[in-house]
Design a binder for these strands. Structure first.
Lengths: 333, 333
DNA sequence: AATGTTTATGTAATCGATTGCAAAAAAGGA
DNA sequence: TCCTTTTTTGCAATCGATTACATAAACATT
């Protein structure tokens, strides 16, 4: 493997000049630049990036911590991040926590070890003080998940509003017995969407039956399980707002397996607008989140931070949209 | 940010000793080790990994090139890789090519720049010579996709056999008009599965109508489009073997939209056994690939290669399985 | 006690690039 | 032509760890 000094020797210049050709070409006369470039080509020289990183203290690498790479939602966000990173010459280190908080910590270590210039967290379940500490030392952006009242740049939609919108959709259709299959309560998104659900119910004077609130774990299977419990209630709900599309799909499956028709017997609304929602039968009414855009925006912010800029605005709330399809049914009479 | 010399000073030893405490603790007496560890804790010292990488020429990082992170199939393989990598102290750089061959080359550059110790390619569409060149210089493992008769370690299933098995399943059920929606023909997997389909047809003396062979692009939408064309043929097929589950889902949707029943009017078999296949209606008959295991095995091999071992065996063919569900229907009379 | 062995520690070179500073060369001005 | 300014290049230090080699200390053996 060739090194810079080899090029320098062949081109009859110093390594300083070679370095300049590579990094600040206009500081070098056209002649020498040409000579050096030829030597580089001749020797098939590739700069040793680690050496450069070591010297410049820039790894040109960002860490992305994601709760689940196999999730149709998060993987789209990841794509947005990765695409944008690449465009700006950054690499992405993948930190799949598999919903395990210890993994989250392990990955964050990479920042301390200076293996990444910054991080985007799609999951932030660690305690606030730890995160604050990290975010004070390194460029960090939160996307999707976030931590309340923490002064760290954040990109997300307004989950409370969106959840309220989804629930109100049911209310407008004439439902009163509306249930909610939530995500794990230690995740803020779950609490937010539950809150939105509650706000909608309360502001329309509808009773919130504690039995109508179930907690899943994001997975299709758990959506199935929780829905089973709901339909077996003495007075089952006529509508269920589900934390995400994956669980919604599980929930609909459960209803069907129990011989119920969706949306006639029980209506369902999901969240995220993953691809499958428009193919599944019935098509699923859901909240569209701009997944790719969230990733892109988060990466853009991170790039700013890594450039040493200070952000005037820290909270970016992107637009969501209720997409009405079949699973929520039509107006009840 | 503290450095090793700070620790050395505080502990009253040389940096050599500090380094030894970190890397070969048994070469240091218990007393000094204790002293050093205390100093490390006291100063909150974290070793600068880039400096270490620079010195040792080991990045403890592997590159994973993947054609599509949002794919339910590949993301499971990726998880297998990532999980195994982490266990062995390796980081994963994500290289999502978005099915773009140029991206593939860009990412491969990282090896030449010594930013990764090795690579796993889940997509290998570049030309053989280039890949050969790379694989001769660096530890590289191919998974899923591969290149014919190339002496690079490979992990996959036997796609030809599996495709034949899927097609023969139709034949056993009494179908004769069997179509195939293939993947892009520049991808070896597509050619293999097509080959398996053809083998099955030929060995059962069934006619292969060129009109029955369609080419999609892996996406659900293309499955939809290709199926539309098939059902609109003058003599439409009664069964369709589809390259992957995603396209199969699209295909089934198309059939339904055209008022056809699946499997009664047209039977479908997919490939990959992604989660959705067991939830979709009808449940989809498919070939199960051990996705996580493929990733794990590939990473294990790569670890061996990076350790300088030479593999006696180079081609690892994992077990696939035909999973019979509803979409392929029952025996025709 | 003298010698050889083993263990523990330190010295200083090294990895391959970048960059501040100085020197040399070229260009411009009088 | 000589002096000043600007441009181009090189010298050598530097980043923070690791490690070959040397030395010192501890221990064992006769």
């Amino acid at each position: 493997m060739m090194k810079m000094s080899d090029v320098a020797k062949l081109a009859n210049v110093s390594t300083a000049t070679v370095s300049r050709v590579l990094r600040k070409p206009d500081k070098v006369s056209t002649d020498t630049r040409q000579k050096v470039l030829e030597a580089i080509k001749e020797l098939n020289y590739q700069p040793n990036m680690v050496a450069r990183q070591f010297r410049t203290k820039e790894t040109k690498t960002v860490l992305v911590v994601i709760p689940d790479v196999t999730s149709p939602f998060f993987s789209e966000v990841l794509r947005g991040i990765e695409h944008t990173a690449l465009e700006s010459g950054y690499r992405v280190i993948l930190g799949d926590t598999e919903n395990d908080i210890n993994r989250e910590h392990e990955y964050i270590e990479l920042l301390l070890q200076q293996q990444a210039d910054g991080a985007i967290l799609l999951t932030a379940r660690m305690d606030r003080t730890r995160l604050e500490e990290i975010a004070n030392q390194f460029p960090v952006v939160l996307a999707c998940e976030y931590i309340d009242e923490l002064d760290v740049p954040t990109v997300s939609i307004n989950n409370i509003n969106a959840a309220r919108k989804a629930t109100e959709h049911f209310i407008q259709l004439g439902h009163t017995r509306i249930a909610h299959i939530a995500g794990p309560m230690n995740v803020i998104l779950s609490r937010d969407r539950l809150k939105g659900y509650e706000q909608a119910m309360i502001s329309h004077q509808l009773h919130i039956d504690p039995l109508y609130i179930k907690e899943g774990d994001f997975s299709l299977e758990s959506g199935y399980d929780q829905m089973l419990q709901l339909v077996e209630l003495e007075v089952p709900p006529t509508a269920v707002f589900v934390f995400n599309d994956l669980m919604a799909i599980g929930a609909i499956k459960a209803a069907k397996d129990k011989g119920l028709r969706v949306p006639e017997d029980v209506a369902v609304v999901g969240f995220d607008n993953i691809k499958m929602t428009s193919v599944f039968e019935p098509n699923i009414t859901t909240i569209e989140q701009p997944k790719y855009e969230i990733g892109k925006k988060a990466m853009d912010l991170l790039l700013n931070l890594m450039n040493g800029e200070t952000l005037q605005k820290k909270k970016f709330v992107l637009k969501d949209e209720l997409i009405i399809r079949e699973s929520s049914g039509s107006k009840r009479i």
